[in-house]
């Protein structure tokens, strides 16, 4: 038995989506985390809450609003049409954008926690040694907060792999474009093809276990996110 060609295609696509999302999230999430960790602004609460929303909201809510927002009459859809990109639902890039929203808290929160844990002192010391802000960030914050970045990358990647509800609602099940592993498993189960479903589903359990094992082994001090 084993994996069918369609299964392999879904696995490849899922890995591509998760990698791309993780890279984008590290780029977008780090400044947000930095700001959240260090700002005295009273906007810290509201912004932190918005970032954390996907932790609490059912994926159907997120998927439904993304479908409406990215649609021809939605605000995002209006923008993408005006830019000549067309509409995002049923495209790989639509899934990338959805995943960035969906996995945001899993990347922002570990980095934010790590930066908060550093405190002001190392940065002040670096400043007295005439390190500029960028220098301080890359030579002081990044190495010291490395466990936080590692946790963020692993969780962001793993959470994107596990995405299902949102994909189902905005994906349209197009092979090689939006048909991810989670959707493929669902289709196998729905089609009563349980043997094929077990192969993929079992692999996902193994994958999730290995990811968490790696996280706890590499990063024993920071288990929470």
């Amino acid at each position: 038995m084993g994996f069918s060609d369609a299964d392999l295609q879904a696995i490849g696509l899922t890995l591509r989506l998760a990698s791309l999302t993780t890279v984008l999230l590290l780029l977008i999430g780090t400044p947000i985390a930095w700001w959240l960790a260090r700002t005295p602004s009273h906007w810290k609460g509201p912004v932190g809450a918005v970032v954390a929303l996907p932790l609490v909201l059912p994926p159907t809510v997120l998927g439904f609003y993304l479908l409406v927002a990215m649609g021809p009459n939605g605000p995002l859809g209006q923008v993408t049409q005006a830019l000549g990109i067309g509409l995002l639902p049923f495209t790989f890039w639509g899934l990338v954008i959805a995943s960035v929203f969906y996995s945001m808290p899993f990347v922002v929160q570990p980095i934010q926690n790590a930066i908060e844990a550093l405190g002001d002192r190392p940065l002040e010391v670096a400043a007295t040694l005439r390190a500029g802000p960028w220098d301080r960030f890359f030579t002081v914050v990044v190495p010291l907060a490395r466990p936080g970045f590692l946790t963020a990358a692993i969780l962001g990647f793993a959470h994107t792999v596990g995405e299902f509800g949102v994909v189902l609602m905005i994906g349209g099940n197009i092979p090689g474009e939006t048909r991810l592993v989670s959707v493929q498993i669902y289709d196998h189960v729905e089609a009563m093809d349980y043997a094929q479903a077990h192969w993929l589903a079992g692999s996902m359990v193994l994958f999730a276990f290995l990811v968490l094992l790696a996280l706890y082994t590499l990063n024993p001090t920071q288990r929470r996110f």
């Binding site: 479908l67 409406v68 021809p72 049923f90």
Partner: peptide, 11 residues
């Protein structure tokens, strides 16, 4: 869900 795709104008 198919209906949802069409009624939101995405298809």
């Amino acid at each position: 869900q198919t209906y949802q795709f069409v009624s939101t104008g995405n298809a």
